Simulated assay, not measured.
Amino acid sequence: MTMAHHVTDFHGILLFRRDYAERDYLVKFLTQEFGKKMFLVRGAKKRGFKMTADILPFTVGSYMGDIADTGLSYIRTPRETSQFQGIGEDIFKNAYATYIMSLVDVAFPDSQPLPDWYHRVYRALELIDEGQNPAIVTNIMEIQLMPAFGVAPQLQGCAICGRTDLPFDYSESYGGLLCQQHWAADPHRLHLSQRTVYYLRQFSVIDLDKVHQIKVKPSTEHALRQLMDEIYASQIGVHPKSKRFLDQMQSWAPRLQNPPVNDD
Rank of each mutant, 00 (worst) to 15 (best):
R189K: 12
V27T: 12
H11T: 15
M146I: 06
G237L: 03
V261D: 08
V137N: 04
F108S: 04
Q180H: 14
F16P: 01
P109F: 11
P259N: 08
H212S: 06
D110H: 09
P113W: 14
I231L: 12
H11N: 14
Q83S: 06
W117M: 07
L256Q: 05
T164C: 04
R163E: 13
A135D: 12
F39G: 02
K45W: 06
R225W: 08
H239Q: 07
Y99D: 04
T164P: 07
P78S: 00
V41Y: 03
T52N: 00
R79P: 04
M64I: 13
K210T: 06
M141G: 04
H11G: 14
L178I: 08
Y25Q: 11
A135Y: 04
L127A: 07
G162H: 03
T77Y: 11
L256W: 13
V151K: 00
K243F: 15
D186Y: 10
T2F: 15
I136T: 07
L224V: 04
H119R: 11
S173M: 13
V7E: 15
Y199K: 00
Q85L: 10
F49M: 00
L246D: 05
K210C: 06
E80W: 00
Y118R: 03
Q83M: 09
G162R: 01
V211C: 02
P153W: 02
Q257N: 13
I128M: 10
T77F: 10
E126H: 14
V205P: 00
D129M: 06
R79T: 08
Q226S: 08
A184L: 12
N133F: 05
Y198S: 08
D247N: 09
W252K: 02
L26I: 15
D229L: 11
P57C: 05
E172C: 05
S204R: 07
